[in-house]
Design a binder for these strands. Structure first.
Length: 161
DNA sequence: ACCATTTGACCAGA
DNA sequence: TCTGGTCAAATGGT
């Protein structure tokens, strides 16, 4: 699953930050823990690696990586890998044991609010010059074909060494 | 004190 | 061996 996010200056960064852990009416939001960052050949900006915060509790394999574009520093590619075994995206059997207090009633609907907290992570890539005030414009990128930089982006939970 | 981030090291695949 | 992905100790924030 690949998403493209774009920044604009409207929303305060602090707002984005607060959005991070706040559950919405759509259900609890997934939170990510950063576990690595790498310089990528041919990319001006490093790529950051995240995984589900509650991996330990739920054994959730969900991961994502955030890559800022070379030509457009306001645009980020966020590649999601794996599927959550916890909470709303859950399709895995272990979800029942995983979400004791969280009824999995909400499905991932198109009108699900933009995961702003993603940008909080993304903006940490040397946002110098951009300023603190920005807004986020996430949108799916169905017509994205050049996956040469990426391995499979389907949720089939590819190789996990 | 607990938990997330940082950062270089380490590892595996091409 | 090079590159991308992950680990884990140290660090910082709450």
């Amino acid at each position: 699953m690949l998403k493209i996010y774009k920044l604009n200056n409207k929303t305060l960064f602090s707002n984005v930050e607060k959005e991070r852990d706040r559950p919405t009416k759509y259900g609890p939001v997934h939170t990510w823990r950063k576990y690595g960052q790498k310089e990528i050949l041919g990319s001006k900006f490093p790529r950051a690696y995240y995984r589900c915060t509650h991996q330990k509790l739920y054994n959730c394999p969900a991961k994502k990586q955030v890559q800022r574009l070379n030509d457009d520093p306001f645009t980020f590619r966020v590649t999601y890998r794996g599927s959550h075994t916890c909470q709303i995206y859950s399709t895995a059997p272990t979800a029942s044991a995983a979400a004791p207090t969280t009824p999995v009633t909400t499905s991932f609907s198109p009108d699900y609010g933009p995961p702003l907290f993603d940008m909080a992570d993304a903006m940490m890539f040397g946002s110098s010059g951009i300023g603190v005030n920005m807004d986020i414009y996430p949108f799916n990128d169905p017509s994205h074909h050049d996956d040469h930089c990426y391995r499979r982006s389907e949720d089939g939970d590819d190789e996990d060494k």
